[in-house]
Each structure stands twice: as structure tokens, then as C-alpha cells.
Design a protein around this nucleic acid. Structure first.
Length: 242
DNA sequence: CGTCCAGGTCTAC
DNA sequence: GGTAGACCTGGACGC
């Protein structure tokens, strides 16, 4: 029987390969609920999407960004997407899980306990190693509490500032993680989203300002609208094939 | 085999 | 405050 384990803000849970569940604390359901964002109220977004032919399909219930059990995990994974191919991201994250996790994503403590050589020689994270280790150390010793970023009371500016202050987290990573912690105002503009948007519009390229203008009507959901526009073809029945 | 660059970020002007 | 250059890695190219 394989066991999957993951540290959580509320405690911990354990899932077996046979789907039997052992829990302590609040149990596994709140975690799944959290990951699937089941409590999110997107009705304000749907009001605008309903009148947008390109996004009306989303009002069926799309828009719940899947997140990791912890913000820490999402930040680490996001750093591992920067300036490299997706296969490299998978390689780095897999190494963290395989060598530092117990069949699951490692805790900040586990990531803080290994030295630079692990990140360099095993995870092959390159210059990101210093960022990851520094982040893990700060979270492990309590200097940084990333889980507080899920607090809906925080303003966009506050969340953005805290993320930008993290090692290895710049504008792209900030916009990405903000989406995952429920702040949908910023568009994720990067080397994947820009060309993809241009392709969907059947243009060679589209200036950022033009993209921003197109989703301006969505206000605090502009980033979510942009993301759904780009990933429509990920939802089989919804979109026209490219 | 060398160059480029991928879901960028940081530092130094 | 805006902008080049450097930066690990490794897969995809051109020669």
C-alpha cells in the first residue's frame, strides 16, 4: 500500500493508494475542499462572462483554480517554472518529492535541512537552488508565514508586495501565485500566455496593453478571465479546437 | 559541436 | 524608474 502524506496548516492527512483515509485534526475533506476551492463565489465574474461570447462557456462553473494544500508548495513549484522548460520544472519538483518528501511534497523543514549540493547536484535546480533553500529556511524558522496569504482580507497590493519580496519571485511568479491565493486582478503575461493569446486572436503578436484592455471589463477578475480565455481548449467540450 | 532559449529574476547602472 | 547582462539546465535547433 502506497502512502501519500502532506503537511498542512491545520495538521496533516494521509491517503492510501486504495483511497482509504486516515486523518488527524480536521481530516482530509477540508483539504480537498481547499484545493478544489469549493467555497469560492465566482458569481460576480460570471455576470460579466455571461455577456462575453468568448467566455460565456465558463459560467457553467469554470474558474476554480486548483491549488496545492499549502501556499509554500505553490510558491516553490512556481519558482521551478521560471526561465526553464516544463520538463525541467517536472524534473525539479519530482526530485524534491522523491528525495525530501514522504511520498508527497516536502515540508519547509525538510527542504531547509538539505544543503546547496542537494539543489545543485540532485534537484539540478541551477541558480534557483539558492532561492528555494532560502525560502524554505525562512518559512521553516517562522520568519515568513506564506499560509497567511490565503487570508481574503488582504489587499491585492499587500499580497503582491509580500510575494515580490520572496527570493526568486518576480512579476511573473507573483501574478501566478496571486491567482492561486484568490487575487484574480493581474494578468499572467509570460512566454507562454503571450503567444497563446496571439494565436487565439490569429495575430503574430499582441501588445500587453491591448490584452489588458480586452480584459479590463472584468475588473478584479481580469486575470481569471484571461486565463480561462487561454485555457478554453483544455476543457474538451467547451472550446473550438485550435 | 555551438547557439539559443524556455511559462524570469536579480543586480547594477 | 527603467533597462542591459548574467544566470543553471538541458532539449531543440543550425552548421
Amino acid at each position: 500500500m502506497r502512502t501519500f502524506e502532506c503537511t498542512l496548516p491545520e495538521g496533516w492527512f494521509r491517503l492510501s493508494g486504495e483511497s482509504t483515509v486516515e486523518t488527524r485534526g480536521n481530516g482530509v475533506l477540508p483539504v480537498v475542499r481547499h484545493m478544489l476551492r469549493l467555497d469560492e463565489d465566482l458569481s460576480d465574474f460570471y455576470v460579466v462572462a455571461k455577456s462575453d461570447p468568448d467566455l460565456a462557456w465558463a459560467t457553467r462553473g469554470a474558474g476554480r483554480m486548483l491549488r496545492s494544500p499549502t501556499v509554500f508548495e505553490d510558491v516553490v513549484k512556481t519558482i521551478c517554472t521560471t526561465n526553464c522548460t516544463w520538463s525541467a520544472t517536472v524534473r525539479m519538483v519530482s526530485a524534491l518529492v522523491e528525495h525530501l518528501g514522504i511520498g508527497a511534497f516536502p515540508s519547509p523543514q525538510a527542504m531547509a535541512e538539505v544543503d546547496e549540493s542537494f539543489y545543485r547536484d540532485v534537484a539540478r535546480a541551477g541558480y534557483r537552488g539558492a532561492y528555494l533553500r532560502s525560502l524554505a529556511l525562512s518559512v521553516a524558522d517562522g520568519a515568513i508565514d506564506l499560509e497567511k496569504l490565503n487570508d481574503p482580507a488582504l489587499s491585492d497590493e499587500e499580497v503582491a508586495a509580500r510575494l515580490l519580496a520572496l527570493p526568486g519571485v518576480g512579476p511573473y511568479a507573483t501574478a501566478h501565485v496571486m491567482m492561486l491565493v484568490g487575487h484574480y486582478g493581474c494578468l499572467i503575461l509570460d512566454s507562454w500566455t503571450r503567444p497563446k493569446y496571439a494565436r487565439l486572436r490569429r495575430r503574430k503578436m499582441v501588445p500587453d496593453a491591448t490584452i489588458e484592455r480586452r480584459f479590463r471589463r472584468y475588473g478584479r477578475y481580469a486575470g481569471l478571465a484571461f486565463w480561462l480565455y487561454l485555457t478554453r481548449d483544455w476543457v474538451e467540450e467547451a472550446g473550438p479546437p485550435l
